[in-house]
Nucleic acid binder design. Structure first.
Length: 217
DNA sequence: ATGGTAGGTGGCCTA
């Protein structure tokens, strides 16, 4: 934590399970934890929410990846992913977000231009129709706006490239799995979204690249 | 239809 403070982020809210999963929101300003839900009762640490002193709430989600086969009858993890999204939807229906930002690895690329090959990817977990339907239901339930696509509506845009490609940059078989959303009451304050694609080429990189957005609030 | 890479933890599982 000292390292984060030295880097200019003395405040945070976080949940984690060593060796498994975790979410964290670092802040330059005081932030108070306001929620940490265990959707689909997985016993995981995939959600944290904090509120800043200006009244803005920030959610960070790590939606389950969902395994390989997009069929809950043979792949329990896929069912858990859908259930996770269904419970997110119901929670946002019951707790209508206002002045809120949602970020995270949502493990779904919702739009045809969020993947390198829409037709091929329709059979691949992260871009199947049932996942996109669940994803859109969560957005509708919270009146969420996709800030990244508000700023960058056109063109292929990815935030993740598999480790398994021999040359991720040349093959460029990416997916936009990481998202920045805002409720419609503050979405007009968002601008300057971008993906730091260069980070995918750093030493010992994550397979995800950072997604940025700026809010004037 | 399959394998490909990376990581964390501990000898395999998940992403």
């Amino acid at each position: 934590m000292e390292g984060f403070a030295e880097a200019g982020y003395p405040y945070f809210v976080a949940r984690g399970q060593k060796g498994y999963n975790g979410v964290m929101i670092l802040s330059k300003m005081p932030i108070e934890e306001v929620a940490a839900e265990d959707f689909a009762s997985l016993g995981h640490a995939r959600h944290i929410a904090g509120r800043l002193e200006n009244g803005v709430t920030i959610h960070n989600f790590y939606v389950p990846a969902g395994g390989d086969k997009p069929d809950r009858a043979v792949n329990e993890k896929f069912g858990q992913k859908l259930d996770y999204l269904t419970e997110m939807r119901d929670w946002f229906k019951a707790n209508k977000p206002k002045k809120s930002i949602l970020v995270g690895d949502l493990n779904i690329a919702p739009l045809p231009h969020d993947v390198w090959d829409h037709k091929k990817m329709l059979k691949i977990v992260s871009h199947t129709q049932v996942e996109v339907d669940h994803f859109n239901d969560v957005m509708a339930a919270g009146d969420w706006i996709d800030v990244t696509r508000q700023d960058i509506p056109e063109g292929l845009l990815y935030s993740w490239w598999s480790y398994r490609a021999k040359d991720w940059d040349a093959a460029d078989k990416g997916r936009r799995l990481d998202h920045v959303w805002a409720t419609s009451d503050i979405s007009a304050a968002a601008h300057s979204s971008r993906v730091l694609r260069d980070a995918r080429g750093w030493e010992k990189p994550s397979d995800h690249a950072p997604v940025f957005a700026t809010f004037d609030l």
